[in-house]
Simulated scan of single mutants.
Amino acid sequence: MFTSHDGLCSIGELAERAGVTVKAVRFYSDRGLLPEASRSAGGHRRYGPEALGRLRLVRSLRALGLPVREVHRILDEEDEAGSVLEDAVAGQLRELGSQLKALRWREAGLQLVQECPPGERAGRLALIGALAAPPSTAPLARFWRSWLPARMPARATAAFLEAAVPEPPDDPEPAQALAFARLNAFVTRPCTGAEQPRPEAHRTAGAHGPAVLYAGLARAYELAGTQLRRGREPYAGEELDSFVGAYTSVYGARDTPAFRSRLARQLAADPRIDRYWELVTEVISIPGGPPEPTPGSAHDWLFAALDAQTTAAA
């Protein structure tokens, strides 16, 4: 309780008891966060006993970084479950997480420029400068959307993009940041849709074939990825059968030695985007650790198994 005869206190006394400045109390009052009980004859603000607790709560909420509008909503709509406060804190945590991720990417970019030889700094700056912080995956998604068959169903496209487009790490090592910058440069270099390399299967799969093909390939890549993590050399097994089956299901063919031989020749002649997958591996793998499998490395493992099998049979 305040000691004045009317149980109220001045703005100065309230500020002193709460450990804040008079300017802060006036700021909160002007924005409706701290209602005054009355005004003195001279027009000075007077506050009731409940103002001290409310002011301390406002100060605590502001110390958490909550904007004034959120503090206002919490004070005005506070309920027993505290859902308004929980929502505000959750939103602030999301925003703070995004800011921290951006700062980590900026730090990695600065380290890349600081550590590179002077003759490479201009090129390195151009790579890093082309990225937002944190970087967007939109250019990578656009690259693949222009590469995929035009009649690819939306669900199948989304599944492919999930596997093909790496998420930028929240706390990147400089090498990962450089790989992502190079990946961004790779997909944004001048290249018309007509010049994009496409495999033969895109032209022969028919209306529903692309979705069937990529669903089958996804299963084969997952199986091959397990063997890649184990360090297994390519071999003819369940993984290769699944890989070949993805193509037989699209072409309406039987899995025969002759079909496998034709498929091996076709895949050998298909254009490749090896550099993309090399950079993806650098982005998603922990520096110094074993490389993480990608659809590209899984495809190479499966093709090597197919090529070895058909060569031996010939």
Rank of each mutant, 00 (worst) to 15 (best):
E50V: 02
E50G: 11
A51T: 02
A51E: 08
A51H: 14
L52I: 07
L52S: 11
L52V: 11
L52Y: 12
L52D: 07
L55W: 04
L55M: 05
L55K: 11
L55G: 03
R56Q: 14
R56F: 02
L57T: 13
V58W: 06
R59T: 15
R59A: 14
S60V: 13
S60N: 13
S60K: 15
R62K: 07
R62E: 11
R62T: 06
A63Q: 14
L64R: 03
L64K: 09
G65V: 00
L66I: 01
L66S: 01
P67H: 08
P67I: 00
P67C: 06
P67R: 03
V68G: 03
R69Y: 08
V71W: 08
V71A: 02
H72E: 13
H72T: 07
L75T: 09
L75K: 04
L75Q: 10
L75P: 01
D76M: 12
D76Q: 13
E77S: 06
E77D: 15
E78N: 05
E78K: 10
E78G: 09
D79H: 03
E80D: 14
E80N: 07
E80P: 02
A81Q: 14
A81Y: 09
A81W: 12
A81D: 15
A81G: 13
G82C: 03
S83D: 12
S83H: 10
V84W: 12
V84G: 01
L85F: 08
L85V: 04
E86W: 08
E86Q: 15
E86M: 11
D87C: 00
D87E: 15
A88V: 07
V89C: 05
A90M: 02
A90Q: 15
A90P: 05
G91I: 12
G91H: 14
G91A: 15
G91T: 13
Q92V: 06
Q92L: 01
L93F: 10
L93G: 03
R94K: 14
E95F: 04
E95W: 05
L96C: 04
L96H: 03
G97F: 00
G97R: 01
G97Y: 00
G97Q: 00
S98W: 01
Q99T: 05
Q99S: 05
L100F: 07
L100V: 03
L100T: 00
K101N: 12
K101P: 09
A102K: 00
A102Q: 08
L103S: 07
R104E: 14
R104I: 02
R104L: 12
R104T: 00
R104P: 01
R104F: 09
R104S: 09
W105Y: 10
W105H: 14
W105C: 00
R106Q: 14
R106M: 13
R106S: 15
R106G: 10
E107M: 08
E107Y: 12
A108H: 09
A108L: 05
A108Q: 06
G109Y: 01
G109Q: 02
G109S: 10
L110S: 10
L110T: 07
Q111I: 03
Q111V: 11
Q111S: 10
L112A: 04
V113Q: 05
Q114R: 15
E115H: 11
E115W: 14
P117T: 10
P118H: 13
P118T: 11
P118S: 10
P118C: 06
P118V: 14
P118G: 09
